[in-house]
């Protein structure tokens, strides 16, 4: 977890309005992704936020699954940028 941020629980997330749920998840994912890919953090976070909220909550608790999704997104993004 990121210092200064309390862990995000499923009940906290469920209590938030739908529109804010992705922002809540993003606020917690962003610093973790920024530590891996500082320059792509915003874009990668946006890509991962399209995943189902329950899976995102699981990824916040499981660094391995977060890292694998991040690397998958980075690979696709870089392949796309290379094509352009």
């Amino acid at each position: 977890h990121v210092r200064g941020q309390e862990p995000l629980t499923a009940s906290m997330l469920a209590a938030a309005p739908l529109k804010e749920q992705k922002q809540l998840l993003g606020e917690r994912l962003y610093p973790l992704i920024q530590a891996l890919h500082p320059t792509l953090a915003g874009k990668i976070t946006g890509m991962l936020l399209e995943i189902d909220n329950s899976e995102l909550l699981h990824m916040l608790e499981s660094p391995e699954s977060l890292h694998s999704k991040v690397e998958e997104a980075v690979a696709v993004l870089q392949a796309h940028q290379a094509k352009e």
């Binding site: 915003g42 946006g46 399209e50 189902d52 998958e72």
Partner: peptide, 26 residues
């Protein structure tokens, strides 16, 4: 098990954290 396979969307909107939103609005 029923989770949809993750297909990264390169056109997904970039996420902007709240602290950066405030910085850019100042």
């Amino acid at each position: 098990v029923d989770a949809k396979p993750f297909v990264p969307n390169v056109h997904a909107a970039e996420f902007i954290p709240t602290f950066q939103q405030k910085k850019s609005s100042l």
